[in-house]
Computed example of a mutant assay.
Amino acid sequence: MLRTFALSCMAAVAAVSALASASPAVAGEPDPLHQRTGFDNGLSAGWLYQRQVPGVMWVDKFLGQDAPAIHHVQGFATGSMMFQRRASWLQPLKSGQPVRIQLDTKARLVNYLGAPTRRELVVELRDYDNPPVDHPYASVWTIVGYLDAKALPGWRTWSVTIADPASLTLPEGWGGYGAEDKKGRPYLPPDRTFADVLAGVDEIAITTYQPGYLYGSDHDFDVLYDNIEIGVVAP
Rank of each mutant, 00 (worst) to 15 (best):
D127F: 00
A151Y: 11
I143Q: 15
A115M: 14
V197W: 00
D181H: 13
G176S: 07
L121A: 13
P116F: 04
Y146S: 12
Y187R: 14
L147P: 15
S167A: 15
L125M: 10
S139R: 02
H135E: 10
S217I: 04
V123T: 08
R118L: 14
I206V: 15
D148K: 05
H135Y: 12
A166R: 15
E172A: 15
S167G: 09
P165R: 00
S167I: 03
D191M: 08
Y177M: 07
L147W: 13
T157F: 02
Y209L: 11
G212E: 09
A195F: 04
T117A: 13
V144N: 02
V197Y: 00
E180I: 14
W155D: 08
I206T: 06
W141I: 02
D134N: 14
E124W: 00
D218A: 12
I204E: 06
T117R: 07
D148T: 12
G145S: 09
R126S: 00
L170D: 03
N130W: 03
G114C: 09
D191A: 13
R185L: 14
R126Q: 04
I206H: 08
V123N: 03
G212V: 13
G154R: 11
G154C: 10
D220P: 01
G145Q: 06
E203V: 01
V122L: 06
Y146D: 15
L198P: 14
T193R: 04
P136K: 04
A205E: 09
G114A: 03
A115S: 14
D181M: 10
Y137M: 02
V133Y: 10
G216H: 03
A166D: 11
L188V: 02
K183W: 12
Y187M: 12
A151C: 04
S159T: 08
Q210I: 06
L198Y: 04
G175Y: 10
L214I: 04
Y137A: 06
P131H: 00
H219R: 11
T142R: 07
Y209E: 07
G212Y: 07
P171E: 06
I143C: 10
L214K: 15
D127L: 00
P153W: 02
D129Y: 03
P132S: 02
S217D: 15
G114I: 06
D148L: 10
L152V: 11
Y215T: 06
R126H: 00
G154K: 12
D148A: 12
P189C: 09
P171I: 07
Y187A: 12
Y112T: 11
Y128S: 07
S159L: 06
W158N: 01
D196C: 08
D127T: 00
P186C: 05
R156W: 01
V144E: 11
G145C: 11
T207G: 05
P165W: 01
A205D: 09
T157G: 04
T169H: 02
P211K: 02
K150P: 08
G154D: 05
I143G: 06
P190I: 01
D218G: 10
A179D: 15
H135K: 15
L188E: 03
G200E: 00
L188P: 05
H219V: 10
G178H: 03
S159A: 14
A138M: 01
A151N: 15
P153Y: 02
L113W: 07
P153V: 08
T208Y: 08
S167Y: 00
A205H: 07
